[in-house]
């Protein structure tokens, strides 16, 4: 299981000590990679509502700054902790916006799509964190199992539990195809990846490593 890096531990200590500059460093140094990760998982949100991602990340950072003692550097990296919190906060924001849009009778297609993601169904931040850590733990094995970069990225999304077509279509560069065709192509690739993952799991590939 991943633990915080030395730099993360130093920053965390500064936050705990009430160093005024530490909060700003946190925003400056960690926001970009987390925004990029969320953008990769939710490309449709980025296109239509980048502010939701900004809100989710800001909320996550402020929650951490309000209660830094909740983060245990021996259990996770600070980045993973913040990413999981941001995902949870983003889901709440999207849900809230979806409810508001429904009230005024506007389309909530995007929000429904995002809400349907299995990742978002994991409401407990600890459960999300564990999921993230398991993924990071298996990353090397996953790379060995899927030497092709595209297959690896698809496998990662499958393990994240992402169900919407958009992220897969982007990785597979199917953006130009019709939606129905995208879905068919994505399904084919996902099925192939899932079969390979299942077989690997059955022969104990991920166990004890």
């Amino acid at each position: 299981m991943g633990t915080a890096t030395d730099i993360e531990r130093q920053l965390h200590s500064r936050v705990l000590e009430g160093d005024e500059v530490a909060a700003s460093i946190l925003f400056s140094k960690y926001s970009d990679s987390i925004i990029q990760e969320l953008s990769r998982i939710f490309p449709e949100v980025v296109k239509q509502d980048l502010e939701s991602i900004y809100e989710g990340v800001t909320d996550a950072f402020l929650s951490y700054l309000a209660q830094p003692e909740k983060f245990d550097p021996n259990k996770a990296t600070l980045r993973a902790y913040l990413l999981m919190a941001a995902k949870g906060d983003m889901k709440n924001i999207i849900d809230k916006k979806a409810r508001a849009l429904k009230k005024v009778g506007q389309s909530v297609e995007l929000n429904e799509e995002v809400r349907n993601s299995k990742v978002d169904e994991m409401k407990n931040p600890e459960e999300q964190l564990l999921h993230q850590e398991v993924l990071s733990l298996k990353k090397d094995q996953l790379r060995a199992l899927f030497p092709k970069e595209i297959d690896f990225e698809v496998a990662e999304l499958v393990l994240y539990g992402v169900r919407e077509t958009g992220p897969y279509a982007k990785i597979l560069e199917l953006d130009d195809l019709e939606e129905a065709e995208q879905q068919r192509e994505v399904k084919k690739v996902k099925d192939r990846i899932k079969v390979k993952l299942k077989r690997a799991e059955q022969r104990g590939y991920f166990k004890g490593k």
Binding site: G18, E20, V21, S24, F27, S28
Partner: peptide, 8 residues
């Protein structure tokens, strides 16, 4: 960056 610093 300044705005995101805590108040002394």
């Amino acid at each position: 960056r300044l705005g995101l610093c805590k108040t002394p």
